[in-house]
């Protein structure tokens, strides 16, 4: 690898320059993580943040909904949009600095990380229904959007090394792209993402997903059904062509997944189909009809 000067410590030190998550965003994530939450709880938090309120109203009044009357009440907007879209708006607003840029280290275009995260979110929310962790449906969605958070941090340290990373996977020096990241940087997008989640005080469930979505068998037993669901959701998103770039589909499927996810091949195919339709709909609601899925 060409970039021998980068150390794990340098990569982790980069986290100090990442802006903190806005308070309203952490609260919305915390609330939506609680299975007993109500839409009114989310509305109370959103109304304390003028920019977030403006984003929500902009989406509900966008052409995607073609409403006959303008919606000016936040509460109405939230109940109309539903919690998954609200979580999507909150995250797109608070993660824009990290997600709205091309990832040079993965040779991927602007918007690819979002498209991949959203598709993973929608797949994970469905897959978790085939586990013992059905109550994690909302968390699976949020976790799906966030799972590759670390890529936005480590990307710049891999800039210029993309070809070496690819070759090391192809010639078998690295077991997969995650392993290649570790060889180059002494860390990987899972560890760095989990460290950022810790810094942001995200709930344990989300941290476990971010850390172990490529190695679900290592996750804490409590969250394992959730982590396996996002692991498979990530795979489905990649198979649909929506990876994040040069890493493409170079990740290992954890062969122990049937111990936690009871899904047949036919069910998987049906799910794939449903996810794609939902993805196209949600993507146009959140981002308009701009082309965001070219890798």
């Amino acid at each position: 690898m060409s970039n021998l000067t980068v150390t794990r410590e340098q990569v982790l030190a980069e986290l100090n320059s990442v802006p903190m998550l806005p308070h309203s965003a952490s609260r919305v994530l915390e609330i939506s993580n609680d299975p007993d939450h109500s839409m009114a709880d989310i509305s109370r938090v959103a109304e304390t943040d003028a920019i977030l309120t403006a984003h929500i109203l902009k989406v509900v009044n966008s052409s995607a909904f073609s409403l006959s009357q303008r919606v000016d009440s936040l509460e109405r907007a939230i109940s109309y949009l539903g919690k998954n879209v609200i979580v999507g708006i909150v995250l797109s607003y608070s993660l824009s600095a990290l997600y709205d840029k091309p990832l040079e280290g993965y040779a991927s275009q602007k918007g690819a990380l979002w498209a991949h995260g959203l598709r993973t979110a929608l797949a994970s929310k469905e897959i978790v229904k085939f586990t013992s962790g059905k109550h994690y449906a909302n968390v699976a969605y949020t976790a799906g959007i966030l799972h590759d958070l670390g890529k936005s941090i480590i990307s710049k340290f891999m800039d210029g090394s993309v070809r070496e990373l690819i070759s090391s996977v192809e010639n078998g020096t690295a077991a997969d792209f995650l392993d290649a990241e570790r060889v180059l940087l002494g860390t990987d997008h899972c560890e760095v993402g989990a460290e950022l989640a810790k810094l942001w005080s995200l709930p344990d469930s989300l941290r476990e997903v971010i850390r172990y979505h490529h190695r679900p068998r290592l996750a804490d037993e409590t969250y394992r059904p959730l982590v396996y669901a996002v692991h498979l959701g990530d795979m489905i998103s990649m198979m649909g062509g929506l990876g994040t770039g040069a890493d493409s589909m170079n990740y290992q499927l954890d062969s122990t997944y049937p111990d936690y996810v009871d899904i047949s091949e036919d069910q998987l195919t049906e799910l794939w189909f449903a996810v794609e339709q939902e993805f196209n709909k949600t993507k146009s609601v959140l981002f308009g009809d701009e082309e965001g899925d070219e890798q």
């Binding site: 795979m235 589909m249 170079n250 290992q252 499927l253 195919t269």
Partner: peptide, 14 residues
């Protein structure tokens, strides 16, 4: 018709 790294070919829609 690509696939993820899956030695058991469970997910090999490709």
């Amino acid at each position: 018709g690509a696939q993820i790294m899956d030695p058991n070919n469970t997910f090999n829609i490709g």
